[in-house]
Design a protein around this nucleic acid. Structure first.
Length: 482
DNA sequence: CTTGCCGGGAA
DNA sequence: TTCCCGGCAAG
């Protein structure tokens, strides 16, 4: 365990503030995490700083790492336990070989381990595994006293691998978007020990959120201790603690703060996963909404998240909740490797907040498409004479998903009449197609009249012969669909 | 009132 | 299936 020390160092590394109390240290770590590179620079510390940078910019990751390695390499070693791939050697060598992703993975794993250690109890609630719920009694005692102690303890108990996590993990890559280490995952990881795969990423993301949410929610039986550097306040309710953090510490933080609160306090029963928290937290915080991965992530995560954070996201609730809430969870449960079953579904993580809107939007689009495939607007506002392309185009709109996007240059003009015959033939062909298209029929609602002129207007009643058959039959105009 | 089109019916 | 129209709703 002596080796651990390095790990600690690492953690402390986050800040030069070693002098401070352990709690303070942790706090700092957290802070960094959250700052996520914003302020990080001063952190000079190899880990903290570097990591931060890394997080923000993946590119640099390796390089800095290599150097920094020296400092915390050892610490990383413990992680090795977690990750079989890396030999005991402290040297960055392994990393160097690896691709960034792999590195991240390691980080993630480490983080997961940590998480599992720290938070597992809560998660444990899930039937699947109770394996190692709490680091151990010893740790329990300590955590009260020193926040930092928590980390260490956890790591120590576990195997040290975890210890490093706090720093490396937090600072590490995993924080980036994976912030979420779902308890479940963590468990699985620990057990499995195998390297996480892509699947983990997704799950992790969700997991983290879940984790946080869980913690904040009712999951606990214990009291909550404020991790803020000088504040050791203990409250029995998470809500109260949040408030406390928000008001007293975060204060101005405002919106995001509400999410962050979670990270500033820990519950007694479970070791606070400071490292974990921050890591997860950071990414989201700094890069509002659109993370690199967000695109993909959002949809899925969003669904899960909406309900949870609730307080923060009033708006999101209505939109996102409906669809995602119910359906998602179920699928997830089933799909999950078994680990997730109990935990995940509902958790609303503040993190994912951005998602809801997008998600809803997507849904909307889909609906739109579904209902109004024909919606394609007719661009020919101007009756100006052009060569109007065959009406068939109109029909073609079927493929056009994007409502307005499809602009078809069609202009009908005097010549129209002449060409009409030809077109007419085409129209006829189309007719059947249209009939076939369910869209119209399905949408019972009568759509308002579009601005597009129809045959009647174009040709006039007197030239009714030129109308498309649909118009003649008083059906939806095929030639000039809206 | 005009226009666009659904719903339905007759051939 | 084709053709037609009553009637509704939007403008």
């Amino acid at each position: 365990m002596a080796t651990k020390r390095p790990g600690e160092k690492t953690s402390s590394a986050a800040g030069p503030t070693d002098t401070r109390q352990s709690e303070a240290e942790i706090q700092e770590t957290l802070v960094y995490m959250q700052c996520c590179g914003q302020e990080a620079p001063n952190m000079t510390e190899s880990n903290g700083h570097r990591n931060v940078m890394t997080r923000n910019h993946q590119v640099p990751v390796f390089v800095p790492r290599g150097r920094a390695e020296g400092g915390w390499t050892h610490p990383s070693a413990p992680q090795q336990t977690t990750t079989p791939t890396v030999p005991s050697c402290p040297v960055s060598a392994p990393y160097s070989f690896r691709s960034p992703e792999s590195v991240e993975m390691d980080e993630i794993m480490a983080a997961m381990v940590l998480t599992s250690m720290s938070c597992s109890p809560v998660v444990q609630s899930s039937p699947q595994s109770q394996n190692d719920p709490v680091p151990g009694p010893s740790s329990g005692g300590r955590d009260m006293e020193c926040g930092s102690g928590d980390l260490e303890c956890g790591s120590g108990d576990m195997e040290c691998g975890g210890g490093e996590l706090s720093d490396s993990g937090s600072s590490g890559y995993w924080s980036r978007d994976h912030d979420n280490v779902s308890p479940v995952l963590s468990l699985s990881v620990m057990e499995m020990d195998s390297s996480p795969d892509e699947g983990l990423h997704t799950e992790l993301e969700q997991g983290v959120e879940l984790n946080v949410a869980k913690r904040s929610k009712s999951s606990f039986r214990g009291a909550y201790r404020c991790l803020w550097p000088s504040c050791g306040k203990v409250l029995t309710s998470s809500v109260g603690m949040k408030r406390h953090v928000r008001v007293l510490h975060l204060g101005s933080a405002s919106e995001q703060s509400h999410r962050e609160e979670d990270f500033y306090y820990t519950d007694f029963s479970c070791r606070a996963p400071p490292a974990l928290v921050p890591a997860s937290h950071v990414p989201y915080g700094s890069p509002p909404g659109p993370g690199p991965g967000s695109g993909l992530q959002i949809p899925s995560s969003t669904s899960s998240s909406p309900s949870g954070s609730g307080s923060s996201r009033p708006s999101s609730g209505p939109g996102s909740t409906p669809g995602s809430g119910s359906s998602r969870p179920s699928s997830r449960h089933s799909s999950g490797p078994g680990s997730t079953p109990g935990s995940a579904p509902d958790q609303p993580s503040p993190l994912s907040q951005s998602a809801p809107s997008s998600f809803s939007q997507i849904q909307t689009d889909h609906l739109y498409q579904a209902c109004a495939p024909l919606q394609v607007t007719v661009s020919c506002h101007n009756p100006a004479p052009c060569c109007w392309t065959p009406p068939p185009l109109t029909v073609s709109n079927q493929p056009s998903h994007h409502n307005s996007q499809v602009v078809r240059g069609r202009c009908r003009s005097v010549s129209v009449g002449e060409q009409w015959l030809q077109q007419n033939s085409t129209t006829n062909r189309l007719t059947p197609m249209r009939a076939a298209s369910p869209s119209r029929s399905h949408c019972s609602f009568r759509k308002g009249r579009g601005e597009a002129k129809k045959c009647r207007k174009v040709y006039g009643v007197e030239r009714k012969e030129q109308w498309c058959t649909a118009c003649r039959w008083k059906k939806a105009c095929q030639r000039f669909p809206d």
